[in-house]
Design a protein around this nucleic acid. Sequence first.
DNA 1: AGGGGTACCTGCGGGC
DNA 2: TGCCCGCAGGTACCCC
Length: 277
Amino acid sequence: MPELPEVETIKSQLNRRLKGGKIKKIEIFLPKIIRLEAKFFINKTVGAKIKKVWRRAKMIIIDLDNGYSLLIHLKLTGRLILCHRLREDYQKHTHLVFHFFDKSVLIFQDIRQFGYFDLYRTENLKGFFQEKKLGPEPLKKSFTLKKFTELLSKKPDKKIKPLLMEQNFIAGIGNIYAQEICWSAKISPLRLAKTLNKKEIQEIYRHLLMILKKAVKQGGTTAADEGYIDARGNKGKYGSQLKVYQREGEKCFRCKGIIERIVLTGRGTAYCPRCQK
DNA sequence: AGGGGTACCTGCGGGC
DNA sequence: TGCCCGCAGGTACCCC
């Protein structure tokens, strides 16, 4: 599901509610979502206290007080849901449940089972992220227009929309927001990076920040046919602001042209050929 | 180097 | 009603 704004929303909720909490018990219903031996995983997590929850790219990291960190990726349909107390019927697709000593419960559900849990030494995480060559966090102050321009100049032959989605170009943007950013900046998703002039780069940069910030503020996006919910079970309110995502065949809100759908690097891409140049 | 295909899964809507 | 197809928020891997 989740791109940066959705993961950021979940992370904040988890941090608020779980910080200081001590893990009492873990139930594992689908072992394959844990990327290491279940025994070891349980051994290193049960009894540990949660220091803080943070985010890098689309990953949620839970630092424990024993030198280990949980790394969680929700992929397309993963959900982390907080409950005040144990519920007997976990519903379908519940693969993992954390129980805390204060009786609160954290449930992991995932329809498509692509999401995963991993465990790292906290001190090794930085190195791990460096190895992955993750791009910058777009909402950090250090992600300047100058930096964005430099990054673009290193990928001259890439199409802008798929490029925005590359986690080692910029971290956190996925298929919804990449389309929305292109529409807002009036840039065709097909444009090669090297063809963008200064003004156009500035527009992409500006809208990229605006859209991500606004989406974070609104708790992310739940589009019409999606199942995204945050850790409190709420839908994201940015869904109502979407301009092109899944609007194929409908009229462009800006120029009344017809929104088209193409496929770029295997991903559906909606855009307005009339006003996105 | 960029991009296509495939794989990992389940569920939903549309067409017949 | 039921079946088949394409599609879905992500990413890793192989191949040309």
